[in-house]
Design a protein around this nucleic acid. Structure first.
Lengths: 238, 238
DNA sequence: AGCGGTCAAGTTGCATACAATCCTTTTTCC
DNA sequence: GGAAAAAGGATTGTATGCAACTTGACCGCT
């Protein structure tokens, strides 16, 4: 479990946050993390500061680092920005799609189709990620793709159960298909509009869901569902 | 020149980058910075890692930190995203403007008018920042405002000479006025469209300008204009 | 019993020492 | 004389020790 470079350490902790091993609000003790990764406190501190700058943890001076808690309000705000960024990706992709990116996009889309056919929600979740990443890349705007990807990752802990809702998989895939169609047709505005709607639908399901629960219940529910299997885990690159 | 908290140190170095005291590509030596701020290397390293995560510096393992160099391509990419974020700010502002934010926006706009009247390009530059920040805040989306502000700051070193072009001040203000009008009228799409165009015009001037210079000349010119007065410096809050 | 203050344990912030890596220069061999 | 290799210097990466701060508990006081 030991990492070599400091960037590896940062990514390792980030993964533990993104996959839910560390729940929002959890305290990230420096010495505990240091022991866990078999390094001293210094690289741990540097990693935590980076995660703080990226928004994954909040650092309270002299009091430590905590996994960032994203309240319902801020979550909706982030999804609003996410929708806009994805919309821009789609618009640009429709305008400037090159053959290589076009193939990657179609391949990701077909992979989603395969996962849908198998009825495996976890597999679809994973292919869905690839699909969105393919759209980011298809924009041809590296910076935009990085930003979209970063925000996508930050939202990951809160999207884990999104697609488990009954019937959502099929709807999601149909929306994907409509986006792909618009992109291939070069209809930038339409593609943007459709992808924005696709993201917003997830956001609305979210806020509905969270609003329906009182805070205590939500916290308990969050925590209970935390160690839920590794369907987010990509094939380990270690 | 000594700072107390680590966040203060981060901000101090960031300021030195943003205001151009450190030019893109400059090496940021840890011991030099440590001496400069009268601290040890440890807090300097933590600050540099944070700046790396925020995109202000690029960190090469075992080789040090350098002020991020933003090439013409990436600059255009960043401006494309900036335009979209600002456009979203304007759209949301038109939809949800509350009296307090409305007043702040109008006040910032009038301050621009004052600076324009005085013909002071530096003053206009400063008030222009306030105006854009007021629009970010007027969106009512805290996360969006933070993102827009962060990107705005990252682009600051490359915007320093934007408004010095003859006649640009007046045009800029007219564009501002059109945006404000649309926001007050509740015309979200129009406000978004106008603000996007406003940002894009700056971007096009940029790329025209940079394309007209070969790289060597541009680097020299960048460096020569670097220590140019402190018209960016806000009233120090130290 | 309730409230306030003091003290102790634990954690973070910073400084310094050491190890590892990189870059430059010099030396040596062909 | 040129090129490759090695040594030296310099810089970054990591570990550890100490000081400062926060926090919780215990004790005394009203």
């Amino acid at each position: 479990m030991s990492r070599k470079s400091t960037v590896g350490l940062r990514d390792a902790i980030e993964q533990d946050i993104v996959t839910g091993r560390f729940a929002p609000g959890d305290r990230l003790d420096e010495v505990t993390l240091a022991r866990r990764f078999a390094v001293s406190r210094t690289p741990v501190r540097e990693a935590l500061r980076q995660l703080g700058a990226a928004g994954f943890v909040t650092i309270q001076p002299n009091r430590g680092a905590f996994v960032a808690e994203i309240g319902p309000t801020r979550l909706v705000e982030m999804l609003e920005v996410m929708a806009e960024l994805e919309g821009l990706c789609a618009r640009l992709a429709a305008r400037r799609l090159d053959p290589e990116r076009r193939n990657a996009l179609l391949e990701a889309h077909r992979a989603c189709e395969g996962a849908l056919g198998s009825g495996d929600a976890d597999a679809y979740y994973y292919e869905n990620e690839h699909f969105h990443h393919a759209i980011y890349a298809a924009s041809g705007n590296t910076f935009l793709a990085e930003q979209a990807r970063a925000l996508h990752t930050r939202l990951k802990p809160y999207r884990r159960l999104q697609l488990r809702v009954a019937g959502r998989l099929g709807t999601s895939f149909a929306e994907h298909a409509a986006v792909v169609e618009a992109i291939l047709a070069g209809e930038g505005d339409l593609a943007s509009q459709r992808l924005k709607a696709h993201v917003r639908i997830q956001g609305e399901r979210f806020s509905d869901f969270m609003a329906a629960l009182r805070d205590g219940e939500r916290a308990r529910w969050d925590r209970a569902s935390r160690p839920s299997v590794g369907y987010i885990q990509p094939p380990s690159t270690t």
